[in-house]
Design a binder for these strands. Structure first.
Lengths: 127, 127
DNA sequence: TTAGTTACTCTACATTTGTAGTAATTGACT
DNA sequence: AGTCAATTACTACAAATGTAGAGTAACTAA
């Protein structure tokens, strides 16, 4: 499922907050970006026609939509091309880049060390 | 500098091969994707007007273009939003995801362990 | 029950993107 | 000099995207 930037921003809210109405989504978006209600509503309509969200229930005159595609599914679709484009398709290149550039807390480092150790063991076991 | 998908694909070639002519770029793209020469040329023209590439020299009637923006600059622009959208802005989340999902070779793991150790040391020194 | 407010639906439009045809130009070869 | 082939330049167009106004319907409070 191909989603535009703005559509992705709106999905972000559905993924975070779950089932929501257009006015609710608008409020969130509006805090970050100066955009009209009808603009947001248009995006929501497009997400609906793409099947990314569905009408769940109605309260008053507000329609509540629930996300249909999972965030992980979209991640799964976009990560490979991102990886390919900017890191020669090699996860380790991206990981190295992140470890270099972004600040990792001590906790992060410990967490990742554990992860790496686990991975190492798994690799060994598979031989 | 905002570049479209296709523009990014073309830049990819400039980044890999350096200064190139449209026919050369076309040959590369055409191996992967069935698209007309003029389509590729249009993208090249757009990249030029965006300032992503510049005319470097002319050979025969072929114009050779050189990349003006660096891949790292574009990476720098796109990585944060990608991170924010799909991994709550936390590099460690993306790293964990990559370590889990993508297969890392033994070499990758060793490489990353070294990296992590270095990072750990740096963190300590900064205190 | 009526005015006010809220939310929806519909329509519209400029810009960007993917796609390509065609015409003009210029080198190259005889 | 004249023709062929390679390239460029120009133009076009449909679809997607970001943006929003206007009109309509429906709840809400007086």
């Amino acid at each position: 499922m191909k989603l535009s930037e703005f559509e992705l921003d709106v999905m972000q809210i559905f993924w975070e907050k779950g089932t929501s109405s257009s006015p609710e989504v608008f409020k969130c978006i509006h805090e970050e970006k100066d955009v009209a209600y009808s603009t947001v509503k248009t995006i929501i309509d497009r997400l609906e026609s793409k099947g990314a969200i569905v009408r769940k229930r109605i309260e008053g005159r507000a329609i509540y939509y629930a996300p249909m595609v999972e965030k992980s599914a979209i991640t799964q679709e976009l990560l490979p091309s991102f990886l390919k484009r900017f890191f020669n398709g090699k996860p380790s290149n991206l990981i190295a880049h992140l470890m270099k550039d972004e600040k990792l807390s001590q906790d992060d480092i410990t967490y990742l060390e554990t992860f790496l150790a686990k991975q190492k063991k798994k690799n060994k076991d598979e031989l």
